[in-house]
Simulated scan of single mutants.
Amino acid sequence: MSIGERLREERNRLGLIQQDAQKIAGVSYVTYLAYEQGKSFPNAETLSSLHSAGFDVLYVVTGVRNSSTLSNEDSSLLADLNQVDEKGRTLAVTTIRSLLDTYKRLS
């Protein structure tokens, strides 16, 4: 399997469309398409951006899954969280922590 195929697989695992991934990567749509088609390859900066959104970059580059990879649901949730501004992120984290604390007390 090629880097482009693994990149597409990761995008699908996270429930993203190509336009979402190209925005996360910070590249044009045509450039992102070229990555998935194997016509060109993402640089380190682009891979870093994709990693921040939940892509398993180790897998994309080497074909070896990162043993600490999150579940699809967790990765998708983190990808959504990474797409909101700092205010939204703070609100989401505070809400989740509050819900978890309540759940622990009730359990």
Results as ranks from 00 to 15, higher is better:
residue 19 Q to L: 08
residue 61 V to Q: 06
residue 61 V to E: 05
residue 47 L to S: 01
residue 35 Y to V: 01
residue 49 S to N: 15
residue 47 L to P: 02
residue 58 L to D: 08
residue 70 L to F: 07
residue 60 V to A: 10
residue 105 R to I: 06
residue 31 T to R: 14
residue 1 M to I: 07
residue 47 L to C: 11
residue 48 S to R: 10
residue 17 I to L: 04
residue 83 Q to N: 09
residue 55 F to E: 01
residue 96 I to L: 14
residue 36 E to L: 07
residue 7 L to V: 04
residue 74 D to A: 15
residue 38 G to M: 03
residue 59 Y to H: 13
residue 37 Q to V: 08
residue 29 Y to P: 00
residue 6 R to K: 02
residue 27 V to G: 03
residue 16 L to H: 03
residue 55 F to R: 01
residue 44 A to Q: 12
residue 22 Q to Y: 13
residue 33 L to E: 05
residue 73 E to F: 06
residue 24 I to Q: 04
residue 67 S to C: 04
residue 62 T to E: 04
residue 4 G to V: 12
residue 77 L to C: 14
residue 10 E to R: 05
residue 41 F to H: 03
residue 52 S to K: 15
residue 10 E to N: 07
residue 69 T to S: 15
residue 69 T to H: 09
residue 59 Y to S: 05
residue 83 Q to L: 11
residue 74 D to R: 10
residue 104 K to H: 13
residue 54 G to Q: 06
residue 8 R to C: 06
residue 53 A to K: 05
residue 37 Q to C: 10
residue 44 A to M: 07
residue 92 A to G: 03
residue 9 E to G: 02
residue 69 T to L: 12
residue 77 L to G: 13
residue 6 R to G: 01
residue 92 A to D: 00
residue 30 V to T: 13
residue 99 L to E: 07
residue 8 R to Q: 12
residue 58 L to I: 10
residue 79 A to H: 11
residue 15 G to A: 07
residue 56 D to Y: 01
residue 54 G to D: 10
residue 69 T to G: 10
residue 65 R to Y: 08
residue 105 R to C: 00
residue 76 S to R: 14
residue 95 T to I: 04
residue 3 I to T: 05
residue 106 L to D: 08
residue 58 L to P: 00
residue 46 T to C: 13
residue 44 A to Y: 05
residue 35 Y to Q: 01
residue 45 E to S: 11
residue 63 G to D: 03
residue 70 L to W: 06
residue 94 T to V: 09
residue 81 L to P: 12
residue 96 I to C: 08
residue 72 N to C: 04
residue 38 G to Q: 02
residue 11 R to G: 03
residue 103 Y to L: 14
residue 69 T to M: 11
